[in-house]
Design a protein around this nucleic acid. Sequence first.
DNA 1: ACTTTTATTTTGACTCTTCAAAGTAGCGTG
DNA 2: CACGCTACTTTGAAGAGTCAAAATAAAAGT
Lengths: 220, 220
Amino acid sequence: MATMAVENYLKHVLLLSEGGDGLVSMGALAGALEVVPGTVTTMIKALADEGLVEHQPRHGVRLTHDGRRLALSVLRKHRLVETFLVNVLKMDWSKVHEEAEQLEHAISDEVLDRLDALLGHPATDPHGDPIPTRQGKISSQVYGTLATCVVERDVRVVRILEQSPEFLQFAEHHRLQPGAMLHVVDRNLTAGMVTLKPGTGRAIAMSLTAAGKILVQPER
Amino acid sequence: MATMAVENYLKHVLLLSEGGDGLVSMGALAGALEVVPGTVTTMIKALADEGLVEHQPRHGVRLTHDGRRLALSVLRKHRLVETFLVNVLKMDWSKVHEEAEQLEHAISDEVLDRLDALLGHPATDPHGDPIPTRQGKISSQVYGTLATCVVERDVRVVRILEQSPEFLQFAEHHRLQPGAMLHVVDRNLTAGMVTLKPGTGRAIAMSLTAAGKILVQPER
DNA sequence: ACTTTTATTTTGACTCTTCAAAGTAGCGTG
DNA sequence: CACGCTACTTTGAAGAGTCAAAATAAAAGT
């Protein structure tokens, strides 16, 4: 069985390799895992010996087939646990990440399957992050963001990329949660601002940076 | 924060000190924790330095106030998680111990409180073991066993002490679960057998040893 | 091309938890 | 009271995961 540390390393390699399609840098990993770079080198060498990652010294690391399988299983646990905490225990979605960080290493496949059934086999977690299937498939659909979509158009929020408690609280306050409908009123590149009109309630203004963290789907 | 190992040592000191009212022997701890005796000595010395246990060399160990507080909190997590797994996820009660063993170290107080509320603040877990309150109170009511109670009398099962998967499966098969009503038909000391008649279904015979693991309450 | 900066790796050390095996204290029996 | 059994403790070593700081390789600037 993989230790907690191993599971965390693999999970973060997976998360960091989304987007930047090739190798994950050691520094990025060190940052994400909150350890010093030397520790990452040590650990990655061990994981490479176990056949879980492929390490190209001085360049970076990528998951092997086995490593990816394990990483997806950890991610599945994380996201299903988050969904449970929000949907069943009604916890604040800005706090569940921390909790899931611990629980993802303690939960068995059997419990996970039952949780999955209890929740109705959700496709995404409360932040809109896709939940890998038991077979290790994960949706990789590409969406636009509030910083890039066409203006004067109705869109539906599908995912919040930035998941710091502060940002999530901000988003919740304005009901910017997956499923929410919005009209994109204006985007001003000079001022770096986007203006939105929710279906109900008053207009929302936010920076392009923030807007770039919110994935949306054109509606109709 | 206490590590998993620390939590486990404290929990087992607590469990082993139920009944044998004074000191817990190092050997008993080694057995319960499945480590060699030398390891226990090492760890207990460390816990004594932290003020969590009181160690009387060559005689045994007992919890301090702080140690007991922590141990009760772990036990509360364990038993509430078991209750959740059985009552909500409908898992087999013979398997939940293993699962809870892991989860008890990963669950936060906040999640625990919500779980407790979801379950309706249960007083006991599915095996009838009392669940410590958030304030660290634990019911220590004394019950008779099927091996000691008066014959020709109706009793109600309140707790199963032996919790190996095999014994629990045996108990479940005969519906010997907390809440079940029984008539104690006969006890034969020579043969070492007890005969029971459930409210519904055919008579059950079991050894005195097995009967001694089932706590009951006289009914009416 | 040479130098500076930055990212990565190496080295040595430390903590935590464990084991195996050797040593020692306590206890009961004769 | 000495003997021997059992329980406990000590000692030395190991693996996992980490850090700090020195060494090195790659990338970027001038």
